[in-house]
Amino acid sequence: MEIALELIESMLVKFRSEKKWSLQAIEQLSEEDITSSPTPESNSIANLVAHIRGAVHSRIETIHLNIPDTRDRDKEFEKGLKMSKEQAITKIRDSFDILIEYLEHLKSSPELLMSQPFLNLPPLTYSQVNNETTALNLIMAMFREVHFHAGQIIYAAKIRKGQLVWNYN
């Protein structure tokens, strides 16, 4: 199980880092920056935040916290999605906190990495994983998804603000 623990610990470091940078970027934005899209075809930061929150809800909260899946993925990408800066901060913080909590759970029981948490649940929708996926595959898919969209949030924030100020501590 040593490799499993190393993997989980590495993922915890990465998710904590993504949380820090995402929050720092959003905190430097105005209310208008949150809902503005870099181009007419692009997603706003509000869309990206809503999408991350939706993915965490449908893929992690449903299995880890036994919360029914109520995700409306199409709404996450609506043009002109309204979201305050405070809502964006709360949604990003909650998303990362849930991911980190799930990883801490796996760290305390690393044998669960090979479990199939969705096996006896209704068919998954809007997911890159299926009901036979393992917890390991799920967390790897979530890392890819969250990392990709957190990068988009930071890039969109840089487009809006030019230079961002980073706290490296």
Rank of each mutant, 00 (worst) to 15 (best):
D97A: 06
L103M: 04
K158R: 15
N137I: 09
V165S: 14
R93Y: 11
E61D: 15
L113I: 10
K82C: 07
L81K: 00
L99M: 15
G151P: 13
S95G: 14
E132G: 14
I154K: 07
E101P: 00
V129C: 07
I92T: 06
F143C: 04
W166N: 07
P122W: 09
W166P: 05
E61F: 00
S108C: 03
L106Q: 01
H57E: 15
H105L: 00
S58N: 13
P110S: 10
F96E: 00
Q87E: 15
R73E: 14
E76G: 07
V129L: 03
D94V: 08
E76S: 05
F77L: 05
R73P: 01
L65Y: 07
L164D: 06
T133P: 13
I159L: 13
K91P: 00
M83Y: 06
E78F: 09
F143R: 15
E111H: 11
M140C: 05
V146W: 01
S108V: 01
L103K: 00
R71N: 09
A88F: 04
S58W: 04
Q152I: 11
L112H: 02
Q163H: 09
M83Q: 11
M114L: 11
A157G: 10
F118G: 01
E86D: 14
I60K: 12
L136C: 14
L106A: 01
S127E: 08
Q163Y: 07
N131I: 02
P117T: 11
H105V: 01
I67M: 12
G151L: 01
Q116V: 04
S95H: 14
T125F: 06
N137E: 13
D72N: 09
